[in-house]
């Protein structure tokens, strides 16, 4: 009598699916643990501020109108700097992807620029672009530029060459091929590069504001830090995290719109 049993299932997985609430639950859980720990004294007040205190500080910040005062310059710096860096980065990346001379000339330059900690160049930017907004825009733009370039030309390299040959075989113009075949084909890679570039932009924003700004989230955090005011420090950090989450979900939304064809 042979043994009879169902074939064991071993497929599945390796395929991200939408699990909307899991991220939220993880956040709530972490915060709840911190709250419980600080209340019971298991975590000392010097190591971690109580989440509810941070929330109170945050409410105060909101009510006093200081939040808007710090947030709006930060957001405009982020927007201008990242828009500059990303748009120049995508254009240069496409040029490198399409033209051998650009590739030969610029890939080594980008490789040389990438590992430079951009913050180290801030004094230089201050001389070049002025102590005001200019140097901050430049820092953020420069910091987002290099990862965007690398992601973009990699993405262009990965566009299926037979699709480009197809475009040529139908006599499409060069510009049509770039617009209708190369760019959409490179879009998945460009967008995942954008995720990294924008996170870097937030880091650089704070760094620039710490080094010289009256208002801005970075300045706020620096001030709180120098006074050892952990509640305010954490309120600032939370704003940054929220900003990060918002940017990331914005990109997810763009991906869902632009890349729906991937299914």
């Amino acid at each position: 009598m042979p043994e009879i049993r169902p074939v064991p299932f071993r497929g599945g997985g390796f395929r991200p699916q939408v699990r909307r609430w899991v991220g939220f639950v993880v956040f709530v859980l972490l915060i709840a643990i911190a709250e419980w720990g600080t209340r019971t004294g298991w975590i000392s007040n010097l190591t971690l501020p109580r989440p509810s205190d941070v929330l109170a500080t945050f409410a105060e910040l909101w009510q006093s109108g200081l939040l808007a005062k710090h947030l709006s310059p930060s957001l405009s710096r982020l927007a201008v700097g990242a828009a500059l860096g990303v748009s120049v980065g995508v254009s240069v990346g496409v040029l490198i992807g399409l033209f051998s001379y650009f590739r030969a000339g610029l890939v080594p330059v980008v490789a040389a620029l990438f590992p430079i900690p951009k913050i180290a160049l801030l004094p230089l930017f201050v001389i070049w672009f002025g102590i005001d907004e200019g140097s901050k825009y430049a820092l953020i733009a420069f910091g987002t530029f290099t990862p965007t370039v690398v992601a973009t030309y990699g993405a262009v390299d990965n566009v299926d060459r037979t699709l480009i040959r197809m475009g040529q075989s139908f006599g499409l113009t060069w510009w049509s091929i770039v617009r209708k075949i190369v760019l959409p084909g490179a879009m998945p890679g460009i967008l995942s590069g954008l995720r990294i570039s924008l996170a870097i932009a937030i880091i650089l924003l704070v760094a620039a504001e710490m080094l010289g700004a009256e208002y801005g989230i970075g300045a706020y955090i620096l001030e709180a830090g120098s006074l050892y005011d952990l509640e305010r420090l954490f309120a600032g950090v939370v704003i940054l995290s929220v900003l990060g989450v918002l940017v990331s979900s914005a990109i997810t939304m763009i991906e869902r719109r632009l890349l729906h064809w991937r299914g």
Partner: peptide
């Protein structure tokens, strides 16, 4: 291999 644009 057909060479269709997957996004169209």
């Amino acid at each position: 291999d057909f060479a269709l644009l997957p996004w169209r």
